[in-house]
Design a protein around this nucleic acid. Structure first.
Length: 467
RNA sequence: GUCCCCAUCGUCUAGCCUGGUCCAGGACGACGGCCUUUCACGCCGUUAACAGGGGUUCAAAUCCCCUUGGGGACGCCA
């Protein structure tokens, strides 16, 4: 455990979008820094020029920003640091911790196959170790005996026999540094004290520690979080939810909800399910990270999002509704509905909507003109009958005469009306609902009518009467 | 093949380190009910798990060993 300020990092390779698994790793790294008042750095591992794209880099940065995972300092691009990496490799050669190797790919493959056949670990057989070559690829002169141990923040103590590891390549014969070397040099140069990353790196860790030791550098603390599984318990794939973070944005999920769900997937704080970003920062502790893989459950994710939809500021939701509508029908068309209108509708829909998209869907009958309202056929047949229509007509007349068209006055008016007629509210509620909304489901009638306003309400009643 | 990791309700998990308070708690879901002007929300209840086997111990979900099952790694990819 580092004594001073902790520095954590997230270091994705820009070969694709930031998916949900990567986002969780980023979130945990961010949390561990923020919870301990440390720094959180971002490094793009773009040394694989073939597969890295600027588009992916941008997508990762956008996703992080959207999630609210702010980073400190400049973004480091690994590809720009090759000189420094080579400098370190040269130092290791000079100090005798690394050596040149001229074995061909075929030679090494043959070695591996032979070892495999004999039931041994496939590894490089150190042929070039003492040949004193002065060119070729560069390998680490790894210790042949002993063991390398570290205490993983999530998995506990891990020990690997040095005999299990081979002399890994540090610099390829084309002069480019390899991943394991670059990671160590960059983490060291960036002052990283805490490395939280995916499970698939546990095996790399002892190798990397060997490099730290060869250079005489402080070894950071490591933590490896298990991966996220799909409902079939297989590695999460595009099929079931390994979507890019921005896909969830498009589906109308709120960023805090995404963080909350992701945080609870593999981390816990007693029985608490819901955490604000501030609470997460205050309560996060790597000791509570789980060590077994977890299944991504869209149903629970939706529930979490629904909770955040309920608690969200209506005005914020209104802004989102405007944005989503604009995406759908274009800015010009969307401008016909103002934010204030959505701000009035949002509170009615908050307990009912699982997402922004869902809310926009439910807001539709509110924002369209009476003349375009869609009437559900079955609902019309059932509720707009010869018995109910006269009632609706009478109610409409009273609405017209109402001095003030508010939720309270509407309620009072309806109450008086049913008392006079000696009927139950139930008898007119659904007919009214179908008449003004076109369906049998909507928020409370009085609040709905109040939001609609007198003009729209009456226009809809009129249209319904004519059906 | 070798090495590493993992294993509590269908799912996310608490408990495990520091055995007894656990005939295992919470949450999502499912089911039933309440509320109610519909749909939601909310509330109440039901359902359902310590992978298996051996130890250690007065006592084990908790400690040890084995088995099984799952995953990962073994690249001049990252």
């Amino acid at each position: 455990m580092p004594m001073g300020k902790i520095v954590s990092r997230f270091a994705p390779s820009p070969t694709g979008f930031l998916h949900i698994g990567g986002a969780r790793t980023a979130l945990f790294s961010w949390l561990i820094a923020r919870s301990r008042g440390g720094e959180f750095r971002l490094r793009i591992e773009d040394t694989d020029r073939e597969r890295s794209t600027d588009e992916a880099t941008r997508a990762i940065i956008d996703s992080m920003k959207w999630l609210g995972l702010d980073h400190d300092g400049e973004i480091v691009h690994q590809s720009e640091r090759a000189d420094r990496h080579n400098e370190v490799i040269d130092q290791m050669i000079a100090s005798g911790h690394a050596y040149y190797c001229q074995c061909s790919k075929e030679d090494v493959d043959a070695m591996r196959e032979r070892a495999m056949a004999e039931g041994r670990k496939p590894k490089y057989d150190t042929t070039c170790r003492e040949r004193g070559l002065t060119s070729g690829a560069v390998r680490l002169k790894a210790p042949l005996e002993g063991a390398t141990a570290f205490r993983d923040m999530v998995k506990g103590p891990i020990v690997v026999e040095n005999a299990e590891m081979d002399d890994m390549i540090l610099r390829r014969s084309d002069g480019t540094p390899t991943y394991n070397l670059a990671v160590v040099v960059d983490d060291h140069d960036m002052g990283v004290t805490t490395v939280l990353r995916g499970d698939d790196h546990v095996n790399n860790t002892p190798r990397q520690i060997l490099i730290y030791q060869a250079m005489g550098w402080d070894v950071p603390e490591f933590g490896h979080v298990p991966m996220i599984l799909g409902p079939d318990k297989k590695k999460l794939s595009k099929r079931h939810g390994a979507l890019s973070v921005m896909e969830y944005e498009k589906m109308g999920y709120l960023p805090e909800a995404v963080c909350n769900y992701l945080a609870r997937l593999g981390w816990s704080h007693g029985d608490q399910e819901l955490f604000t970003m501030d609470e997460m920062q205050a309560l996060f502790n790597p000791d509570n990270l789980g060590s077994s893989p977890s299944v991504f459950d869209l149903t629970k994710f939706e529930w979490v999002n629904g909770q955040y939809m309920q608690k969200a500021d209506p005005d914020r939701l209104a802004g989102l509704l405007c944005d989503f509508l604009a995406r759908e029908v274009g800015a010009e068309e969307a401008a016909k509905v103002d934010r204030a209108t959505f701000a009035k509708i949002a509170p009615l829909l908050q307990p009912r909507a699982k997402s922004v998209v869902d809310m926009l869907e439910q807001a539709r009958p509110f924002i369209m003109d009476a003349s375009f309202l869609h009437y559900d056929e079955a609902a019309v047949r059932k509720f707009l009958t010869d018995e109910t229509k006269p009632l609706l007509e009478a109610v409409a007349r009273r609405m017209q005469a109402l001095p003030e068209f508010s939720e309270a006055s509407l309620e009072a008016m309806h109450k008086a009306f049913i008392e006079e007629r000696g009927i139950k509210f139930k008898e007119i509620a659904q007919p009214i609902r179908v008449a003004i909304m076109g369906t049998t489901q909507s928020p409370g009638l009085f609040e709905t009518m109040a939001v609609l306003g007198r003009e729209q309400t009456l226009a809809r009643l009129e249209r319904a009467l004519a059906l």
